[in-house]
Write a protein that binds this DNA or RNA. Structure first.
Lengths: 200, 200
DNA sequence: TTCAACATACCTATTAGTAGGTATGTTGTA
DNA sequence: TACAACATACCTACTAATAGGTATGTTGAA
């Protein structure tokens, strides 16, 4: 896992990315204030002091985690939105399924943005800004999909893309939160089915 | 503030309740893992060690906070549901307004249940159970209101009380989370208007 | 004189972060 | 092409601060 004295091969991610990945996982499962450098140290196999070499402060790490996630998410979103074989409604449904699969169904993780959003009052401004950017990006994609569907009369006539996207985003976060609380994935599926069928 | 050497008057809540109230406030603003006994000590004017006299562990305090909140909330919910002058739809809207007023509009607080629900993987079972009970209670009230409205044909014909209540609960939590993130109360109002008008 | 409700004084564990050192890799220049 | 100078990526050892928690002492009121 360590790069010290070794060449980096294709099968070996560099340490910095390992730290980001493990940080992402820890934030999604335990939250910002419930994970420590020691947790990362144990998983990555690097001393806590060495983590500071890559990320001087915990805030720096958190920012890197969110920025990295934004890139990954945008690629993923693009894969869905650019699929010409799907209707806009199908794209939105697929997006929801995809979120469930990468969060609760993957070690009961929460959405990264949501997990950090809840700590907004205790996060330093750079992290808060990064989280806003991440949520903003996902919401913009949703609004675009709804807007597209509206043009082709795929959705209800009087739909408002922006407020509907906002409501959809909120329901995704909230339902994920309650799915984790009750450990019942049907909560997510049922709630999203109701919302999508009524809102769109 | 302290009761030591003083009689408890009507204007003076007892220390135990003061600790619970301050704990409630701290959890709603900072979250479980970002508040300490020292924070409570500073606000209540009691030494941290003395808090342990009333609540042996942090878990005990958290449970007391949630149980206390459940009682308060249920009284509040009853005041709304038992108001004969309101339609079921009006009751639900009032309930949403009331939640916004007591959370984001009050020092940017989050819903207590939501704030703890997010930490489900790091909370001890008694706390998790208490949070489930609290959310369950609110959700049951919502389901009852929807069920009542359905009987009087106040809502859409094909409405399902339980799944609609679940979706509504999720949207309330999620929209509150994003309202705090972006510090924009219109997010709550807009999203809830869309949801209520489409779902009910 | 008992005892509830505190305070004092501590403990152990953990936190993020720092200081200084070391082995290896890279690079510009003579 | 040799090598000094520097960069990279770690290490050990440490710090100050904070966390939740405990054992024991004090005090005023019933």
């Amino acid at each position: 896992m360590l790069n010290q004295h070794y060449n980096i091969t294709s099968a070996m991610k560099d340490t910095k990315q390992c730290i980001i990945d493990e940080g992402t996982h820890l934030i999604q499962t335990r939250g910002y204030h419930a994970f420590s450098f020691q947790d990362i140290s144990n998983k990555v196999g690097i001393k806590t002091a060495s983590i500071h070499y890559h990320f001087p402060t915990k805030t720096d790490l958190a920012v890197a985690v969110v920025v990295s996630q934004k890139e990954t998410t945008e690629k993923h979103l693009h894969n869905i939105t650019s699929n010409g074989a799907l209707t806009e409604r199908e794209k939105i449904k697929l997006l929801c399924q995809s979120i469930l699969a990468t969060t609760y169904l993957s070690e009961e993780k929460m959405c990264l943005a949501g997990m950090l959003a809840i700590d907004i009052l205790t996060l330093e401004p750079p992290v808060a800004q990064a989280v806003q950017n991440l949520i903003g990006s996902i919401e913009a994609t949703l609004a675009k999909l709804i807007s597209n569907g509206a043009k082709t009369n795929e959705f209800r006539r009087d739909i408002d893309a922006q407020s509907t996207a906002t409501a959809l985003m909120a329901t995704i976060e909230g339902t994920l939160m309650l799915t984790r609380l009750f450990k019942d994935e049907n909560r997510f599926t049922d709630a999203m089915d109701v919302i999508i069928s009524r809102l769109l």
